[in-house]
Every structure is written in C-alpha cells, then in structure tokens.
Amino acid sequence: MLEVKNLHAWIEGKEILKGLNLTVKPGEVHAIMGPNGSGKSTFSQILAGRDFYHIPEGEVLYEGRDLLELSPEVRAREGIFMAFQYPVEIAGVTNAYFLKAALNAIRRHRGEPEVDAFDFLEMIQDKMALVQMDDTLLKRSVNEGFSGGEKKRNEIFHMAVLDPKLAILDETDSGLDIDALRIVADGVNSMRDPERSFIVITHYQRLLSYIVPDFVHVLVDGEIVQSGGKELALELEERGYAWLVKHPADENHSEPVPDQV
C-alpha cells in the first residue's frame, strides 16, 4: 500500500527527515513514536501533500504510484486521509456542508454518484454516533471555537465519513480525556479492515493499548531508529527515548547501549 524509501525532507535550510524508510501493507496498523521535533508531523504532512518541504532524495509509492507527484486533493480522493495534529479553524465554512462537498469530490473521483443533503444527513448518522459527535458541531464553522477534544473528534468523524484506504492520525489522542480517548479508539477499531491501513502517531502507550498496532516505529531526528511489535511501545513508556538516540559517541557500537537504571 505505502512504501517510503530513503525519504529526505528539508525546510528553511534544515534537514528534518534524513532517510526515512517505511512499508505499510493493507490492513496493517503502524504506530510511530518519537521525541518532540523528530519529524513525525513533517512526515504526515508530506504524505498528505503539504508542498513547502524540499525533497531532494527519496521516494514514496502509494499503491505503486509516485505519491509525491499528486496534489493533496487527488491524494485524498485516492484514499489518503490525515487527521491533523492541530486541526485548522475555518470561519464561515460550515462543518457539515464542507464535509459533504469533500465527500462528493471523492465520490466523483471514484465514479460514484454524488449524495444530496438528505442522503448525506442520513449516512452520517451512524458515523456521528460512532464518535459521539454533538449535532451542533455539524452546523458550526469548521473547528471554529471547538474545544481541543472536539477538534480531534471531528477529525475522526471526517475520517469515518470519507472512508479512506490509508489514514494517518497525527497525535489524535493528545488533548483527549480518558472517555474521549476510548471513543476515538473505538471509532478507529471499528474501521479496521483488511483493506484499510493506519499510521498512528502518538506519544502515549495508552492509545496503543486501545488501538493495538502491528508495528511500532521510533522516529528520532528524522530517521526510524528502531522498529518492533506492540511491546516496543511498552518498553519506550518505561525507558524513554534516550537509549535509542544515537549519540556520535555511540556510533562505534553496533547495538545501542541501554542506560544503567
């Protein structure tokens, strides 16, 4: 489904991604963890089509096609969805109508008939129930004045309606209370299927006990320095990232040296 090879990305003269490799197969859930500023959001923004990064090297294949060639809207229509770490407030654009327009753009692209307002309201009922979205959030401007948790829930609601093949969730759990975390995780779990893949970016192992990943990767300073199964998240929770960070002094060691606790 997704193959990222040796991806390098620069912004403002600074290299953020330094040769990132990742392969995601259909139906898999990959978690990406890593310290602040290590490049997790940069990576998800690049996948969604943000164009202000300079990418001198590397390749991203999505269903065998060069993803970096495609505009953000074509990626979305081809099934990529990114839940923003910081969802954008858009005054004057109604949440529900915007989502309907987005859904219809995607449906047109897929050769499916467009839905009218009536069909739309009907088909979003169960998606709203899924994330326990309040009706009033539909009628308000996109994210405008939403609480932190409401914004994250709205992202998952968008995802549920747009029905992507590859969903990238950038810290969707941060800012959620315990109940909301559970609701969001249940929403994601109910969407898991053999054809749909997820990349879940998080700082907390807690989310991963609800959304159990197939793989956990650790991104440090623009590179994936460690990959493993779901146990890796637990280990990180306990030990932090320090033991994984490659210090110049460590370069001689073939294996990272665990800290003495």
């Binding site: 969604a48 969805f81 954008v88 915007f98 753009a105």
Partner: peptide, 11 residues
Amino acid sequence: ALFYLRSRGIG
C-alpha cells in the same frame, strides 16, 4: 486552511 480543505479532497 487551504491545505486543510484540499487534504479532504476539495480541489
């Protein structure tokens, strides 16, 4: 905002 809208499929 422009990127947000486009990332949801709007041209």
